[in-house]
């Protein structure tokens, strides 16, 4: 997972509410074997239309997405987070996110920023022709017009995102405790400690 601190640049002023994971990545993309390449399927139905917001010269490859309430609702497919990353999006700003999506986003190093609707409304206007600046360290979103919005984030998640620490890496750092437990199981519950068909 790449560390993430400062995300600056074009923000897609999308704004739609209740965007479910079927919209983000339709089910027929689930038969893949890699995380890469899903960007092609991201927002497929929307992008089938000529002149859609995602494929303009300006917005293509933008690192930030501004969305409406309840972003990422629906199925638990992690493909939604992979698809956004593959499009180049590393930060989504919205008034609220579904729990499962924000968890999946976090696990994949995408920063989800929750701001009140008024702030979103302002950003949607500014983002049309101006860059947006998101700073995780200071927990602020700023614009070239002196707008400055602060956001809350779980300190543990912040720590992980800043350090590029994935959950696997974090757990591996607890190796001593895991080894101890492994030894305890081997001693107390030997029939669970191994699985062999011998």
């Amino acid at each position: 997972m790449k560390p993430i601190n400062h995300v600056a640049g074009t923000a897609i002023p999308f704004g739609a509410k209740n965007v479910d994971t079927d919209v983000i990545i339709p089910a027929h993309w689930l038969k893949t074997i890699t995380r890469e390449g899903l960007g092609k399927g991201a927002f497929e139905a929307i992008r089938a239309e000529e002149g859609n917001i995602f494929d303009t010269e300006r917005n293509k490859g933008a690192p930030i997405l501004i969305a409406g309430d309840n972003f990422g609702c629906g199925s638990s497919r992690e493909h939604a987070a992979w698809a956004l990353l593959d499009m180049g999006i590393t930060c989504v700003i919205a008034p609220s996110f579904s729990d499962i999506f924000s968890g999946n986003a976090f696990k994949n190093g995408i920063l989800t920023v929750v701001l009140p609707q008024e702030a979103i409304d302002r950003l949607l206007v500014v983002a049309v022709d101006q860059p947006i600046d998101v700073d995780l360290e200071s927990q602020t979103v700023t614009t070239p017009f002196q707008d400055r919005f602060t956001f809350e984030i779980d300190p543990f998640r912040k720590h992980c995102l800043l350090g590029g620490l994935d959950e696997v890496g974090l757990t591996l750092s607890r190796d001593a405790a895991i080894k101890q437990h492994e030894a305890k199981i081997a001693a107390d519950l030997p029939f669970l400690a191994t699985a062999s068909a011998a």
Binding site: S76, E78, N104, K107, N108, E167, V168, T171, L172, I178, E182
Partner: peptide, 16 residues
């Protein structure tokens, strides 16, 4: 479990 958790179990034999 989800795919990231599959990875987590493969690598650590644990889950959070």
């Amino acid at each position: 479990i989800g795919t990231s958790e599959v990875e987590h179990v493969l690598a650590t034999q644990t889950l959070q």
